[in-house]
Amino acid sequence: MSESMVDGTTQVAGRTLPDKTLGQIYVDNPRVKARDVNVFYGDKRAIDNISLDIGASQVISFIGPSGCGKSTFLRCLNRMNDTIDICRVEGEIKIDDQNIYDPLVDVVSLRARVGMVFQKANPFPKSIFDNIAYGPTIHGLATSKVELEQIVESSLQRAGLWEEVKDRLDQPGTGLSGGQQQRLCIARAIAVSPEVILMDEPCSALDPIATAKVEELIHELREQYTIVIVTHSMQQAARVSDRTAYFHLGKLIEVGDTKQVFTNPNHELTQDYITGRFG
């Protein structure tokens, strides 16, 4: 992909990058408000001045070619980027009107509010029960063993995994199939009752049947949670999300209702990407 500076504007793949994000950045009932977010890896700018609202009870999907910064932006939302030494975040991200990059904010309690599901299913090498119970235990969510068991059961129920594993809760979570493992990770995330769930390409390693189950699950969870999903699959974005944001080279090119973005994109780059001209 060629990138050159022509007359002060950045040219990418023969298209001009917009000065600012197209579409509707703001929503009526935002849970997450990101303003002028810049992320640097050392000297390299990975996220370039992104502002975005994410509404409560809404699924938003981040799409874009590899290396466009969508995962980086996602990981800003629960400060997982803190674990990378050379990573620096500027700007403001507010969740429920609290700036999560405020020095007073405890990252542990933030991550209890903003759960995360990773690209590769990563259950702990412990039993299915312990996988789910770990979060509630460290956050002190259950006051008794019975309560803990209830939390585990309801989390597995909501993740649609209960019927499949209820007879083998003491068996290792790593012994499940790939799709089941990913749903186990989702159950583990919702066990701590977060407000926001971040999903970083949750279905990239799953077969179509397992993918369908996870998407079904996202449909059911949208009532209760704000869900942000990074995906490489245009169809998935179209199927599960209310809004879609298109990232390119660290910039948020455009964001809008999923239907509008897929049928009538504002920018040529988005058009090129969703029609499969590159990506």
Partner: peptide
Amino acid sequence: SIRDAALGIGASKIQTIMH
């Protein structure tokens, strides 16, 4: 990925290491 899983669920650094 194990560290990510623990941190992502809200375990502190020490909890991640110890558990």
